[in-house]
Structures are given as C-alpha cells and as structure tokens.
Simulated scan of single mutants.
Amino acid sequence: MSFDPLFAAPAVIQIHAFLALAAVVLTACILTLRKGSPLHRTLGWTWVLMMAAVALSSFWINQIRWIGPFGPIHILSVVTLVSLVLGVRAARRHDRGTHARIMRTLVFGALIIAGGFTLLPGRIMHAVVFGVAS
C-alpha cells in the first residue's frame, strides 16, 4: 500500500479521497455513540458537512464522462446531497426511524458501494491499495 498515486493526483481528488476516508472513520465513531447524545449530534453534523464536501467535490472530478463533464458518480452525488438534507430534516423532526434509514443508506451507498468502485483497476485508489501494475 502506497499513497504516492493519491499524492500525485490533482488536489480536488486528494481532498475528495481524504474527506471520504475521514467520513468512513467518523462513521465508525458515530455508530458507537448513544443516539441523540450531544456528541452524536456534533459528530453527526461534522459527518454531514464532510459528506456534502465529498459529494460537491466530485463535480470537479470528470474522469468518467457521459454527458459533457458529468458521469455516473455525479448522479450519486446529487442523490447524496438530497439525502443529507432529508436525513437532517428527519432528525430535526425527531423521526428517528427515517433518519436512521436514510443515514444507513448513505453509508452503504455513498461510502461502501461508491468506495468499492474506487478499487477497480485503473482507478487511483486501486493503485494506492494494490500497487501500480508494472
């Protein structure tokens, strides 16, 4: 494992990747907390802002294009941004079930599934984790 391919990538990709990795770590921390506690809320807001930054930064990453500069990841980014708003709104309304469902879906879809696609051959994170083919 070497972070050299990531450090050689454009700044927006570095920011995007490090925020996503930090969100994964923060997710694990939040899941260990008592739901609704002040720390859960503080770290939850931090996570929401981090995920919004990850989604927004993706609009400047245009390696896979379908329509103009936009590709399939940008659909996920829009869904992520909308879901963040809906998840926060559910929490503010004390609708714990909806809040939990939306946040679980975000973790699964935006972090785990999308993160898994970054490990495909030819992607930067594949080179980070598995090394560059010689």
Results as ranks from 00 to 15, higher is better:
residue 20 A to M: 02
residue 31 L to F: 11
residue 23 A to M: 03
residue 29 C to R: 14
residue 42 T to A: 14
residue 20 A to R: 03
residue 22 A to P: 01
residue 46 T to G: 13
residue 48 V to M: 14
residue 47 W to K: 10
residue 45 W to Y: 13
residue 28 A to E: 05
residue 44 G to Q: 00
residue 30 I to K: 10
residue 48 V to C: 15
residue 44 G to N: 08
residue 17 A to V: 09
residue 42 T to I: 15
residue 37 S to W: 04
residue 26 L to W: 09
residue 46 T to R: 01
residue 48 V to T: 11
residue 34 R to I: 09
residue 34 R to Y: 12
residue 48 V to K: 08
residue 26 L to N: 14
residue 44 G to C: 09
residue 48 V to I: 15
residue 22 A to G: 07
residue 43 L to D: 10
residue 44 G to S: 01
residue 38 P to H: 04
residue 15 I to M: 07
residue 28 A to I: 04
residue 20 A to Q: 02
residue 22 A to E: 04
residue 48 V to D: 08
residue 23 A to H: 01
residue 45 W to N: 12
residue 21 L to C: 04
residue 27 T to D: 11
residue 19 L to H: 05
residue 44 G to K: 03
residue 17 A to N: 02
residue 18 F to N: 06
residue 24 V to N: 09
residue 36 G to K: 06
residue 17 A to M: 09
residue 15 I to D: 00
residue 25 V to R: 01
residue 23 A to K: 02
residue 16 H to A: 01
residue 22 A to I: 00
residue 38 P to I: 05
residue 43 L to R: 10
residue 44 G to W: 02
residue 15 I to T: 09
residue 29 C to G: 15
residue 35 K to V: 11
residue 38 P to Y: 08
residue 16 H to Y: 05
residue 42 T to L: 15
residue 45 W to P: 11
residue 18 F to M: 08
residue 42 T to R: 13
residue 26 L to C: 14
residue 19 L to R: 02
residue 15 I to R: 02
residue 19 L to K: 01
residue 39 L to V: 12
residue 24 V to W: 14
residue 37 S to T: 03
residue 48 V to P: 08
residue 26 L to Q: 10
residue 19 L to P: 00
residue 48 V to W: 03
residue 28 A to C: 10
residue 28 A to F: 14
residue 31 L to G: 06
residue 22 A to Y: 04
residue 43 L to K: 07
residue 21 L to M: 03
residue 48 V to F: 08
residue 21 L to S: 00
residue 36 G to S: 02
residue 46 T to A: 15
residue 32 T to H: 09
residue 34 R to K: 11
residue 21 L to G: 06
residue 19 L to D: 06
residue 26 L to R: 12
residue 15 I to S: 00
residue 25 V to W: 12
residue 34 R to E: 08
residue 21 L to E: 01
residue 31 L to M: 07
residue 38 P to E: 02
residue 40 H to Y: 05
residue 20 A to N: 04
residue 37 S to A: 06
